[in-house]
Amino acid sequence: MSRTDPQFNLRIPHELRDRVMEAAQANKRSATAEILARLEASFADTSEPRITTRIRREALSGEDLESSLPLQLIKATDALRKQLAVVEEISEKLKAEKE
Rank of each mutant, 00 (worst) to 15 (best):
M1F: 14
T4R: 01
P6Y: 08
F8R: 00
F8W: 06
N9Q: 08
N9A: 11
L10N: 08
R11N: 07
R11E: 02
I12S: 08
I12Q: 01
E15A: 11
E15G: 02
L16K: 05
R17I: 02
R17P: 09
E22M: 00
E22C: 01
E22N: 00
A23N: 10
A23C: 06
Q25W: 04
Q25P: 09
A26M: 04
K28H: 07
R29Y: 05
A31E: 15
T32A: 12
T32Q: 12
E34P: 05
A37Y: 13
R38Q: 08
R38D: 03
L39T: 09
E40I: 11
A41V: 00
S42L: 13
S42I: 01
F43L: 07
F43W: 04
D45H: 13
D45P: 02
T46Q: 14
E48L: 15
P49T: 10
P49G: 13
R50N: 06
R50C: 01
I51H: 07
T52V: 04
T53L: 09
R54V: 00
R54L: 08
I55P: 02
R56L: 02
R57S: 11
E58A: 14
L60R: 10
L60N: 14
G62W: 05
E63W: 13
D64Y: 12
D64Q: 09
D64I: 03
D64L: 05
E66W: 15
S67T: 14
P70W: 02
L71D: 08
L71V: 14
Q72R: 06
L73W: 12
A76G: 06
A79Q: 14
L80N: 11
R81Q: 11
Q83K: 05
V86E: 10
K93A: 09
K93F: 03
L94P: 02
K95M: 05
E97S: 14
K98Y: 01
E99T: 11
E99A: 10
